[in-house]
């Protein structure tokens, strides 16, 4: 499809079917308990698209779901956790069981890899990772992802080179987009501005579809212009139970419930996947089951008070 075509609005099911394929490297939007692309993640789980390599800086609940559903082969990231809500337990158990390949970076190292991809460069130099096992043990273990060279202008100074990271597809949840795929992310933007520009395909879900006229009136607010975007999915509450800045807070109750299931694994986890995803035709149906109107108003009000 041409990225300059006029209308990219489609359902999550159509977007995921068209742009996420078995074996893909998937750039994961959001961070920790904020703005994870949960609706798009649910759709990948529902369609059972597997053998995925998941990349990002902090990978959180969306990554953990794909690992827990048996759809991930490998992760490349700086962290796997939900901060105060704990580690990403399906990820942790899969690494301990030896069923998931991992490559460790720092957050800046991953952001630098996306920057290289976004600038059309093969690699980015970094002064992080020096003197550590992130560099040395992974190099000794056969990883070809790190090189240390001397600064050409200062021969005694080591510099790390990190290869560009170019996802096949990135999945991102934003506050606003127009039907062309101009995207407005408010608040923190994680690694998404660089990751999206580095990706071959990009799916954006949004809380609100705005007019192209509004985009053109405030062009300095556009985080990602339409030439980088392939599909726009209108999905209010699309990052639930993680937050969307300015719209609603994270749902601590649901996050804790997920973490209990993820920590115990087995039938508890399978039933979470079944009840929340597989038995639901779409994300709206998941939301109807997971969160009632009064709780939605609470989380919106709670965010409003913090603005």
């Amino acid at each position: 499809m041409n990225r300059k075509s006029s209308n990219k609005v489609m359902s999550a099911a159509e977007a995921v079917e068209r742009f996420v394929h078995d074996g893909a490297t998937v750039g994961m939007g959001g961070q920790s308990i904020g703005r994870c692309a949960m609706a798009l993640t649910h759709e990948i789980v529902r369609q059972g698209i597997g053998d995925l390599t998941l990349v990002g800086c902090n990978l959180s609940m969306s990554m953990d779901l794909l690992v827990g559903a048996g759809l991930a082969r490998r992760t490349e990231c700086g962290t796997g956790n939900l901060e105060r809500f704990g580690t990403a337990f399906r990820w942790r158990r899969a690494i301990e069981a030896g069923t998931l390949e991992v490559e460790d970076y720092s957050h800046l190292a991953m952001a630098s890899r996306f920057l290289a991809g976004a600038l059309g460069l093969p690699f980015m130099p970094s002064k992080s990772l020096l003197g550590t096992d992130i560099l040395h043990k992974q190099m000794e273990g056969g990883s070809d992802s790190f090189r240390v060279i001397d600064n050409p202008w200062n021969p005694d100074e080591p510099v790390v080179l990190l290869p560009a990271c170019r996802p096949d597809v990135s999945i991102v949840h934003a506050q606003k987009a127009d039907e062309l795929g101009n995207v407005v992310i408010e608040g923190f933007t994680t690694q998404e501005p660089e990751m999206v520009r580095a990706s071959s395909s990009v799916i954006v879900s949004c809380e609100e579809l705005i007019s192209s006229e509004e985009i053109r009136r405030y062009p300095d607010r556009t985080t990602v212009p339409y030439i980088f975007v392939d599909a726009v999915v209108v999905q209010p509450w699309g990052s639930y139970p993680t937050s969307t800045y300015g719209c609603y807070e994270h749902d601590a109750e649901h996050l804790r419930r997920y973490q209990v299931c993820a920590r115990s694994g087995g039938e508890a986890y399978e039933s979470y996947l079944r009840e929340m995803i597989h038995e639901r035709p779409d994300f709206d149906s998941h939301l109807d089951g997971a969160i009632g109107e009064p709780r939605r108003r609470e989380l919106e009000e709670s965010m409003r008070r913090l603005m």
Binding site: R84, L115, F188, Q191, E194, S243
Partner: peptide, 27 residues
């Protein structure tokens, strides 16, 4: 409860990206 929590972003002079903070300030 998180670095993405709106409580930790309240009335900042700028919101930005990981690259801004870890690259542009720290590195």
């Amino acid at each position: 409860s998180s670095v993405t929590d709106a409580r930790v972003m309240h009335r900042a002079v700028r919101h930005g990206s990981l690259l801004d903070a870890l690259g542009g300030v720290l590195q």
